[in-house]
Structure formats: C-alpha cells, structure tokens
Amino acid sequence: MALRALIVDDEPLARQELQYLLESAGGVDVLATGSNGIEAVELVRIHRPDVLFLDVQMPGLDGFGVLKMLIERKVRLPQVVFATAFDQYAVRAFEVNAVDYLLKPFDRGRVLQTIEKASTRALAAAPHDHPAEPQTESQIESQTEAKLDALLRLVGEAQAPRAPRSKVVVRAQSRLLLVDQREICFASIDDGAISVVTPQIEGQSNCRTLEDLMDQLDPETFWRAHRSYVVNIQHIREVVPWFKSSYQLRMDDPKKTEIPVARTQTKRLRELFNL
C-alpha cells in the first residue's frame, strides 16, 4: 500500500522538487501540498496522512510550532520528515523517535532512504491479526508529548555553538595532508568519491558523504549550494546569472570552476549576498 503523504514548504520550487522525487520513486501518494504552518495543521486534520514532509523554517508558524499545535488540538501525529536547510551540526537533532529529516537541496538517494524508513514504520504500526490491547487516548497523547519534548530538547542542544575542526584530512599524491579548512575553495562528490579543492592542491576526502564532510566544517563559512557541491563562501569570486533565473558560482581556484546553485538554494544565495 502506498504511503499517504503531505508536503508543506513555503518555497514553491522546494515543494515541486520534493513532490517530483516522491512520485517518481513510487510507493508514495502525495495527497496535497501547503505553503505555511497553518495550512499544515489543517491539511493533517483533514487528510490524516501517514507521513508529513514539513519545512522547519517558515514565516509565522514554523515546523515545530505545527507539531505543538497538532498536539494541542489532539490531532493524531503522522510520521514527520523535516525538510531543512539547517547546517549539518543541527540535523542530528531530528533523528529521534519517529522523526526523520531531508537536507535541502534534496538528494534522490536520501529521499529513497526516507521513503523506505517511513514505509517500514507504517507497516509496523498497521493492525495485525492479533492486535495488542489498544492504548487509551491519554496514553497516546502522553507518549506523543514525550517524543516532542525529546525532539525540542535535542534541537536546542544541537544548535548550541560548537567549535569546528580547524583542519581536515585530504589525500593527495599518496600523502595525507592536513588542510586548514579556510583554504578549501569547494568540495564535490562524483560516483561516491569526494574531491576537495584549494588554491594549491586538489585531493580526495576520506569522508563517505558530503554530509560527513560538512560535520567537520564551519557552518558559518561552508554552504551546500548544490546536492553535489559544498562551497566556501569566502572563495566565491563571482555570482553568474544563468538561464531561467538560476545562478552559477565562479570560484577563485586556479581553474575558476563554475558551480551550479540548486533552485532550492536561490533564496539562500540572495540572503548571503543581498541580491
């Protein structure tokens, strides 16, 4: 049986991209989409979805406010998948209980993992031939509130300032070099291999994913401009307008590499440089 899903995000491009990825993956029926927290509460009340894909940062009622309001109104909480552009040091807070997360810009492989996880949980929660004694409404409400309290506590802890590592390991010419992260222009991933580029060297990271690499980097300096690229905003030489209101970044590495900006990151680009 297909997962019944809702998508709520204040960015139209993010909603469209996520809906496309979910529907093209199969096994997900997107019932409706919304653009703000108030719509999210009403859509959950009406549709009773299996899973809610919810933007964290929305004007007015944010993602956490949506969960609080659903509990206050005694609406059954679906599985919640946060869609977030939060820096990597914060996203672990979302991995608690039945809550998952997706980082913007969305990665198809990560979306597929989330669908699989949500499907497994939905199957486990489905009625069986010999169901256990049903829980009372007060028991369910108490458990839900405990989950939300744990989530909010972890979010607060994760958002506390942390000192990132000053150096990262880069493998180049059979040597393991300790590179000051301020020197990194950008990093990219291709076929599972992560390349790290500085003005002096180009090598490979030992990290398995860009998410793992981002864990080591200063979130105030490094930005996931595209699902395949992390850039040091101090090494952006030029913002190049591209077709259909998109942009590319020309870096200050020796090759003057041009890096695409994901459409879901256009808003962040404008915030960074007041475009």
Score class of each variant (00 low, 15 high):
A2S: 13
L6C: 09
E11L: 11
E11K: 01
P12S: 13
A14F: 08
L22R: 08
S24P: 06
A25N: 05
D29C: 06
L31N: 12
A32G: 07
G34W: 03
G34P: 02
S35H: 06
I38F: 05
E39M: 13
E39T: 11
V41I: 12
E42W: 01
I46R: 01
V51W: 04
L52F: 01
F53R: 01
L54A: 14
D55L: 09
L61G: 07
D62K: 03
V66R: 03
V66H: 04
L67V: 13
E72Q: 13
K74R: 12
R76C: 10
Q79Y: 04
V80K: 02
V80S: 08
F82I: 08
T84L: 15
Q88L: 01
Y89K: 09
V91E: 00
L102E: 02
K104W: 00
K104V: 01
P105K: 01
V111D: 07
V111Q: 03
V111T: 09
S119A: 13
A126T: 02
P131F: 00
E133F: 10
Q135F: 08
S138R: 06
Q143S: 12
E145T: 13
L152I: 11
R153W: 11
L154R: 11
A160G: 05
P161Q: 07
R165W: 05
S166D: 09
V170C: 05
Q173H: 09
R175E: 13
R175I: 13
L176E: 15
L177D: 14
D180L: 15
D180Q: 12
D180A: 15
R182Q: 14
R182P: 04
E183S: 10
I184K: 01
I184E: 06
C185Y: 07
A187H: 00
D191G: 14
I194L: 12
S195G: 13
V197C: 08
V197S: 01
T198I: 03
P199D: 10
P199V: 07
R208C: 11
L210W: 00
M214H: 03
D215K: 05
T221L: 11
T221Y: 04
S228W: 00
V231Y: 00
V239P: 00
S245N: 15
P254D: 03
K255G: 08
T257H: 09
T257S: 14
E258T: 15
V261N: 07
V261K: 05
F273A: 03
N274F: 05
N274T: 14
L275D: 05
